[in-house]
Design a protein around this nucleic acid. Structure first.
Lengths: 161, 161
DNA sequence: CGAAGTTAGTTGTTACAACAACAATTATCC
DNA sequence: GGATAATTGTTGTTGTAACAACTAACTTCG
């Protein structure tokens, strides 16, 4: 957009342009989407964070996942899952049940409350996405998805040292 | 992991596919990029978070911004800026100076340390970006940037109720 | 069997994010 | 010129994120 009216005094030490960097754009867009989704949930009377929504979705699809599996499916590490599950358990959305076969393992299940809360969410999310992407051509959306997947693949594993 | 292959019992309540949702993809990719950037900084001996990098970059470009301006330039709210600036001030990367003309205002300046730390960062970021986007055609990158900007524009202001 | 290694989950620490409530300061209005 | 409004920044609370260090439970293998 470059509404860049500022004269830029010798441009710092290099000519790196943050506003043009794809990483920055992804970051900013991601923040906005998360923020708006949260607001959408609230507007519809749900006090659910985007992250809790993801966990609810995973469990609605496959109930009884253990915490390590949830971590895997959500690209988070296990400590994070512990705390998110803590919060959701406090709110009676889910419950932990120790596995019989392996007493280290917590299997996580939706409660009746969690399930009924979940029911209303996919539609809100779908509407949110539709709003976010309005006016954008479908093939461009597909390009974005393909590129993001490629970036994710590039980052998992290898290192630029 | 998963010893039992699960058949997906009636697929939850709707057919929403999270892994196909562009919002989820953006979220996952953003996390990975932030994580890898942080690691790159560390590998090169910098204990700088991606967010601190952004603030340093803004100040290197335009020294003496006040906190509200930084908030604007980084799509964050003012309380967040307060705390990030707190951390950076503790680390002697920046300093606050109360404005003479308006004693409510803190102008934020790079310290000598902050400036010299900043020097090394753009190159690391550039390399990180190159690695993240390797093998991806330039026009596709441009499409992604255009789409993300469009999404951001869609989300700023209007609401899907 | 039993010591060593592995895996699942938790806790501690630091940092970032959204929101609400607030103090201090400056601007506005009558 | 004093009440009132708006602006800047801070604090409190809750939730998310990464990393390190830890415990408990299971597995392996001599």
């Amino acid at each position: 957009m470059s509404s860049d009216t500022r004269p830029d005094p010798e441009s710092g030490s290099t000519d790196f342009d943050l506003d043009e960097a794809i990483g920055f754009l992804i970051e900013v867009t991601e923040q906005l989407m998360k923020r708006e989704l949260r607001k959408s949930f609230r507007r519809h009377g749900y006090d659910i964070t985007p992250y809790q929504w993801i966990v609810l979705h995973r469990l609605a699809h496959t109930d009884g996942l253990n915490q390590a599996e949830i971590a895997e499916l959500t690209t988070r590490d296990r400590p994070n899952i512990t705390r998110i599950i803590d919060v959701m358990e406090r709110r009676k959305l889910i419950e932990r049940r120790t596995s019989e076969r392996d007493r280290r393992v917590n299997k996580v299940f939706l409660t009746a409350v969690g399930r009924s809360v979940y029911e209303g969410l996919p539609e809100i999310v779908a509407r949110h996405l539709k709003n976010a992407t309005r006016g954008i051509r479908d093939p461009d959306i597909e390009t974005v998805k393909a590129v993001l997947r490629e970036i994710a693949r590039n980052l998992q594993g290898s290192h630029d040292h």
